[in-house]
Amino acid sequence: MSQAKGTDNKASEANGANGVTESTANQAVQQPDHAHAPAPTSSLKLIATLGLIALLSGLLVVSVVEATRSAIAENHRIALERAVFEVLPGAVNRVDFIVSEDGLAPVRGSEESTTDPKAQRIHAGYDADGALVGVALSGSGRGYEDVIRVLYGFDPQRERIIGMTILSSRETPGLGDRIESDERFLASFRDLAAALADDGEGLAHTIRTVAPGAAAAPGEIDGITGATVSAEAVGRIVNHSAQQWVPRIVPHRDDLQIDLEEVLQAAPADDEDDEDDEDEADGGVTGTPVIEGER
Protein backbone atom coordinates (compact mmCIF):
# COMPACT_ATOMS: atom_id res chain seq x y z
CA MET A 1 0.00 0.00 0.00
CA SER A 2 2.63 2.50 1.04
CA GLN A 3 4.69 1.39 -1.91
CA ALA A 4 1.90 2.38 -4.23
CA LYS A 5 1.48 5.69 -2.51
CA GLY A 6 5.13 6.40 -2.84
CA THR A 7 5.01 6.03 -6.58
CA ASP A 8 1.87 8.09 -6.61
CA ASN A 9 3.60 10.94 -4.84
CA LYS A 10 6.57 10.64 -7.11
CA ALA A 11 4.33 10.87 -10.10
CA SER A 12 2.72 14.04 -8.89
CA GLU A 13 6.13 15.43 -8.05
CA ALA A 14 7.33 14.70 -11.52
CA ASN A 15 4.31 16.39 -13.02
CA GLY A 16 4.88 19.22 -10.66
CA ALA A 17 1.55 20.93 -10.80
CA ASN A 18 -0.49 19.01 -8.27
CA GLY A 19 -0.24 19.16 -4.48
CA VAL A 20 2.69 21.51 -4.11
CA THR A 21 2.61 21.49 -0.32
CA GLU A 22 2.39 17.76 -0.15
CA SER A 23 5.18 16.93 -2.53
CA THR A 24 7.61 19.39 -0.99
CA ALA A 25 6.86 18.04 2.44
CA ASN A 26 7.44 14.50 1.26
CA GLN A 27 10.56 15.32 -0.65
CA ALA A 28 12.46 16.07 2.54
CA VAL A 29 11.42 12.79 4.11
CA GLN A 30 11.97 10.73 1.02
CA GLN A 31 15.41 11.92 0.11
CA PRO A 32 17.55 9.84 2.55
CA ASP A 33 16.27 6.31 1.79
CA HIS A 34 15.61 6.73 -1.84
CA ALA A 35 15.84 3.09 -2.74
CA HIS A 36 13.40 1.83 -0.09
CA ALA A 37 9.72 2.58 0.34
CA PRO A 38 9.45 6.23 1.24
CA ALA A 39 8.10 7.14 4.67
CA PRO A 40 4.42 8.02 4.72
CA THR A 41 3.15 11.43 5.68
CA SER A 42 3.80 12.03 9.36
CA SER A 43 0.98 11.09 11.72
CA LEU A 44 1.02 14.56 13.17
CA LYS A 45 0.10 16.05 9.84
CA LEU A 46 -2.69 13.49 9.34
CA ILE A 47 -4.13 14.25 12.75
CA ALA A 48 -3.81 17.99 12.26
CA THR A 49 -5.58 17.91 8.88
CA LEU A 50 -8.43 15.73 10.06
CA GLY A 51 -8.73 17.73 13.28
CA LEU A 52 -8.94 20.96 11.36
CA ILE A 53 -11.58 19.62 8.98
CA ALA A 54 -13.59 18.24 11.90
CA LEU A 55 -13.34 21.56 13.73
CA LEU A 56 -14.60 23.51 10.71
CA SER A 57 -17.40 20.97 10.21
CA GLY A 58 -18.44 21.29 13.84
CA LEU A 59 -18.54 25.05 13.59
CA LEU A 60 -20.66 24.90 10.45
CA VAL A 61 -23.12 22.41 11.94
CA VAL A 62 -23.50 24.39 15.16
CA SER A 63 -24.20 27.61 13.31
CA VAL A 64 -26.80 25.94 11.10
CA VAL A 65 -28.49 24.36 14.12
CA GLU A 66 -28.62 27.74 15.81
CA ALA A 67 -29.89 29.49 12.71
CA THR A 68 -32.71 27.04 12.05
CA ARG A 69 -33.75 26.40 15.66
CA SER A 70 -36.58 28.92 15.80
CA ALA A 71 -37.96 28.00 12.37
CA ILE A 72 -38.01 24.31 13.29
CA ALA A 73 -39.70 24.99 16.63
CA GLU A 74 -42.27 27.10 14.83
CA ASN A 75 -42.93 24.29 12.33
CA HIS A 76 -43.48 21.81 15.15
CA ARG A 77 -45.79 24.26 16.88
CA ILE A 78 -47.88 24.80 13.76
CA ALA A 79 -48.10 21.06 13.14
CA LEU A 80 -49.30 20.42 16.69
CA GLU A 81 -51.70 23.35 16.53
CA ARG A 82 -53.27 21.99 13.37
CA ALA A 83 -53.56 18.53 14.88
CA VAL A 84 -55.19 19.83 18.07
CA PHE A 85 -57.93 21.65 16.17
CA GLU A 86 -58.39 18.64 13.92
CA VAL A 87 -59.20 16.27 16.77
CA LEU A 88 -61.43 18.78 18.55
CA PRO A 89 -64.11 19.59 15.97
CA GLY A 90 -65.52 23.08 16.43
CA ALA A 91 -62.74 24.33 18.68
CA VAL A 92 -61.37 27.78 17.88
CA ASN A 93 -59.38 28.62 21.01
CA ARG A 94 -56.81 26.56 22.78
CA VAL A 95 -55.52 26.67 26.36
CA ASP A 96 -52.90 24.33 27.75
CA PHE A 97 -53.41 22.74 31.13
CA ILE A 98 -50.94 21.21 33.54
CA VAL A 99 -52.10 17.88 34.96
CA SER A 100 -51.02 17.23 38.51
CA GLU A 101 -52.23 15.27 41.53
CA ASP A 102 -54.53 18.06 42.66
CA GLY A 103 -56.23 18.59 39.37
CA LEU A 104 -55.84 20.65 36.24
CA ALA A 105 -54.46 24.14 36.13
CA PRO A 106 -54.48 26.39 33.09
CA VAL A 107 -51.03 27.51 31.98
CA ARG A 108 -50.51 31.22 32.08
CA GLY A 109 -47.46 32.64 30.41
CA SER A 110 -45.60 33.55 33.57
CA GLU A 111 -45.81 30.03 35.03
CA GLU A 112 -43.82 28.63 32.15
CA SER A 113 -40.48 28.34 33.85
CA THR A 114 -41.65 27.40 37.33
CA THR A 115 -43.58 24.29 36.38
CA ASP A 116 -42.53 20.93 37.73
CA PRO A 117 -40.82 18.99 34.95
CA LYS A 118 -42.84 15.89 35.76
CA ALA A 119 -46.13 17.70 35.31
CA GLN A 120 -47.77 16.80 32.00
CA ARG A 121 -49.53 19.12 29.69
CA ILE A 122 -52.78 18.67 27.81
CA HIS A 123 -54.39 20.98 25.29
CA ALA A 124 -58.01 22.01 25.87
CA GLY A 125 -60.09 23.42 23.04
CA TYR A 126 -63.02 25.83 23.37
CA ASP A 127 -65.60 26.78 20.76
CA ALA A 128 -66.55 30.28 19.71
CA ASP A 129 -68.90 30.72 22.70
CA GLY A 130 -66.19 29.72 25.17
CA ALA A 131 -67.69 26.30 25.87
CA LEU A 132 -65.31 23.35 26.33
CA VAL A 133 -65.10 21.07 23.28
CA GLY A 134 -62.62 18.62 24.73
CA VAL A 135 -58.98 17.98 25.44
CA ALA A 136 -56.35 16.74 23.01
CA LEU A 137 -54.24 13.88 24.37
CA SER A 138 -51.31 12.14 22.79
CA GLY A 139 -50.13 8.58 22.78
CA SER A 140 -47.48 6.53 21.02
CA GLY A 141 -46.50 2.94 20.54
CA ARG A 142 -45.15 0.39 18.10
CA GLY A 143 -46.80 0.10 14.72
CA TYR A 144 -45.91 -2.28 11.92
CA GLU A 145 -42.71 -0.52 10.89
CA ASP A 146 -41.91 2.10 13.48
CA VAL A 147 -43.40 4.05 16.35
CA ILE A 148 -46.80 5.58 15.59
CA ARG A 149 -47.68 8.80 17.40
CA VAL A 150 -51.32 9.75 17.64
CA LEU A 151 -53.28 12.70 19.00
CA TYR A 152 -56.91 12.21 19.93
CA GLY A 153 -59.67 14.45 21.26
CA PHE A 154 -61.46 13.46 24.45
CA ASP A 155 -64.69 15.03 25.65
CA PRO A 156 -64.55 14.75 29.46
CA GLN A 157 -68.24 15.61 29.95
CA ARG A 158 -69.60 12.85 27.75
CA GLU A 159 -66.55 10.65 28.37
CA ARG A 160 -66.10 9.92 24.69
CA ILE A 161 -63.31 10.21 22.16
CA ILE A 162 -64.30 12.71 19.48
CA GLY A 163 -61.47 12.64 16.95
CA MET A 164 -58.08 11.12 16.18
CA THR A 165 -55.19 12.01 13.94
CA ILE A 166 -51.81 10.40 13.29
CA LEU A 167 -48.96 12.75 14.18
CA SER A 168 -46.25 10.57 12.70
CA SER A 169 -45.94 7.07 11.34
CA ARG A 170 -43.87 5.12 8.85
CA GLU A 171 -46.43 2.50 7.93
CA THR A 172 -46.28 0.79 4.54
CA PRO A 173 -47.35 3.24 1.83
CA GLY A 174 -50.65 2.25 0.28
CA LEU A 175 -51.44 -0.34 2.96
CA GLY A 176 -50.62 0.52 6.57
CA ASP A 177 -50.68 4.24 5.97
CA ARG A 178 -54.42 4.05 5.39
CA ILE A 179 -54.74 4.52 9.16
CA GLU A 180 -54.32 8.18 8.23
CA SER A 181 -56.94 8.26 5.51
CA ASP A 182 -59.42 5.35 5.78
CA GLU A 183 -62.78 7.07 6.26
CA ARG A 184 -64.55 4.32 8.18
CA PHE A 185 -61.60 3.75 10.49
CA LEU A 186 -61.30 7.45 11.32
CA ALA A 187 -65.07 7.77 11.70
CA SER A 188 -64.95 5.19 14.49
CA PHE A 189 -62.95 7.67 16.51
CA ARG A 190 -65.42 10.52 16.07
CA ASP A 191 -67.74 9.02 18.66
CA LEU A 192 -66.00 6.34 20.66
CA ALA A 193 -66.96 5.40 24.20
CA ALA A 194 -64.15 6.00 26.68
CA ALA A 195 -66.03 6.05 29.96
CA LEU A 196 -64.23 5.95 33.28
CA ALA A 197 -64.59 2.61 35.07
CA ASP A 198 -66.69 2.55 38.25
CA ASP A 199 -63.65 2.01 40.45
CA GLY A 200 -61.99 5.08 38.96
CA GLU A 201 -59.03 3.06 37.61
CA GLY A 202 -58.87 2.98 33.84
CA LEU A 203 -61.65 2.64 31.31
CA ALA A 204 -64.97 0.85 31.63
CA HIS A 205 -64.43 -0.80 28.22
CA THR A 206 -61.15 -1.61 26.57
CA ILE A 207 -60.66 0.29 23.33
CA ARG A 208 -59.68 -2.14 20.60
CA THR A 209 -59.76 -2.60 16.87
CA VAL A 210 -62.06 -5.34 15.54
CA ALA A 211 -62.71 -6.65 12.04
CA PRO A 212 -63.93 -4.07 9.49
CA GLY A 213 -67.64 -3.43 9.99
CA ALA A 214 -67.80 -5.55 13.15
CA ALA A 215 -67.61 -2.72 15.68
CA ALA A 216 -70.69 -2.96 17.89
CA ALA A 217 -69.75 -2.94 21.57
CA PRO A 218 -68.58 0.28 23.28
CA GLY A 219 -64.91 0.99 22.67
CA GLU A 220 -64.69 -1.03 19.46
CA ILE A 221 -63.12 0.43 16.32
CA ASP A 222 -63.69 -0.69 12.74
CA GLY A 223 -60.47 -2.12 11.37
CA ILE A 224 -59.06 -1.76 7.84
CA THR A 225 -58.69 -4.62 5.39
CA GLY A 226 -55.04 -4.92 4.43
CA ALA A 227 -53.87 -2.77 7.32
CA THR A 228 -54.78 -5.06 10.18
CA VAL A 229 -51.55 -4.68 12.12
CA SER A 230 -51.41 -0.90 11.83
CA ALA A 231 -55.08 -0.41 12.67
CA GLU A 232 -54.80 -2.68 15.69
CA ALA A 233 -51.70 -0.82 16.81
CA VAL A 234 -53.57 2.49 16.74
CA GLY A 235 -56.40 0.96 18.82
CA ARG A 236 -53.86 -0.36 21.30
CA ILE A 237 -52.04 2.97 21.50
CA VAL A 238 -55.24 4.95 22.09
CA ASN A 239 -56.38 2.40 24.68
CA HIS A 240 -53.10 2.47 26.53
CA SER A 241 -53.01 6.25 26.59
CA ALA A 242 -56.68 6.68 27.54
CA GLN A 243 -56.40 4.12 30.35
CA GLN A 244 -53.88 6.47 31.95
CA TRP A 245 -55.30 9.86 31.05
CA VAL A 246 -59.04 9.38 31.58
CA PRO A 247 -58.82 8.57 35.33
CA ARG A 248 -56.67 11.65 35.80
CA ILE A 249 -58.89 14.02 33.86
CA VAL A 250 -62.51 12.97 34.41
CA PRO A 251 -62.56 13.49 38.23
CA HIS A 252 -61.22 17.01 37.69
CA ARG A 253 -63.23 17.87 34.63
CA ASP A 254 -64.79 20.90 36.33
CA ASP A 255 -61.35 22.52 36.38
CA LEU A 256 -61.61 22.77 32.61
CA GLN A 257 -64.65 25.05 32.87
CA ILE A 258 -62.74 28.28 32.97
CA ASP A 259 -63.53 31.83 32.12
CA LEU A 260 -61.85 31.87 28.76
CA GLU A 261 -61.65 35.65 28.56
CA GLU A 262 -59.72 35.90 31.77
CA VAL A 263 -57.14 33.24 30.87
CA LEU A 264 -56.64 34.59 27.41
CA GLN A 265 -56.06 38.06 28.73
CA ALA A 266 -53.52 36.77 31.22
CA ALA A 267 -51.55 35.30 28.36
CA PRO A 268 -48.55 37.37 27.38
CA ALA A 269 -47.92 38.60 23.90
CA ASP A 270 -47.40 35.72 21.53
CA ASP A 271 -44.13 36.90 20.09
CA GLU A 272 -41.85 35.53 22.78
CA ASP A 273 -42.64 31.90 22.40
CA ASP A 274 -39.95 31.09 19.92
CA GLU A 275 -37.46 30.92 22.74
CA ASP A 276 -39.03 28.39 25.03
CA ASP A 277 -40.21 25.66 22.74
CA GLU A 278 -37.24 23.38 23.03
CA ASP A 279 -39.10 20.35 24.29
CA GLU A 280 -41.30 20.30 21.25
CA ALA A 281 -39.05 18.01 19.33
CA ASP A 282 -40.30 14.99 21.26
CA GLY A 283 -43.79 15.75 20.36
CA GLY A 284 -46.20 17.38 22.14
CA VAL A 285 -45.66 20.47 24.16
CA THR A 286 -46.03 24.09 23.32
CA GLY A 287 -45.35 27.32 25.01
CA THR A 288 -47.77 29.92 26.13
CA PRO A 289 -51.52 29.55 25.89
CA VAL A 290 -52.04 30.08 22.26
CA ILE A 291 -54.89 32.06 20.95
CA GLU A 292 -55.47 31.14 17.40
CA GLY A 293 -58.68 32.08 15.75
CA GLU A 294 -58.11 30.73 12.28
CA ARG A 295 -57.51 27.23 11.23
Binding site: D8, T41, T49, L50, I53, L60, V61
Partner: peptide, 25 residues
Protein backbone atom coordinates in the same frame (compact mmCIF):
# COMPACT_ATOMS: atom_id res chain seq x y z
CA UNK B 1 -3.84 19.83 -2.00
CA UNK B 2 -4.05 19.99 1.81
CA UNK B 3 -5.61 16.59 2.48
CA UNK B 4 -2.95 13.87 2.76
CA UNK B 5 -3.58 10.80 0.61
CA UNK B 6 -3.66 8.47 3.63
CA UNK B 7 -6.68 10.06 5.25
CA UNK B 8 -8.51 11.35 2.21
CA UNK B 9 -11.51 9.02 2.50
CA UNK B 10 -11.98 9.90 6.17
CA UNK B 11 -11.74 13.60 5.33
CA UNK B 12 -14.28 13.26 2.48
CA UNK B 13 -16.73 11.46 4.74
CA UNK B 14 -16.46 14.12 7.46
CA UNK B 15 -17.08 16.82 4.86
CA UNK B 16 -20.03 14.97 3.32
CA UNK B 17 -21.54 14.21 6.73
CA UNK B 18 -21.32 17.87 7.67
CA UNK B 19 -23.31 19.00 4.68
CA UNK B 20 -25.84 16.21 5.15
CA UNK B 21 -26.45 17.43 8.70
CA UNK B 22 -26.85 20.96 7.36
CA UNK B 23 -29.39 19.79 4.78
CA UNK B 24 -31.21 17.75 7.42
CA UNK B 25 -31.79 20.85 9.55
Amino acid sequence: SVIPKEVRIAAYIVIIATFVTVVDY
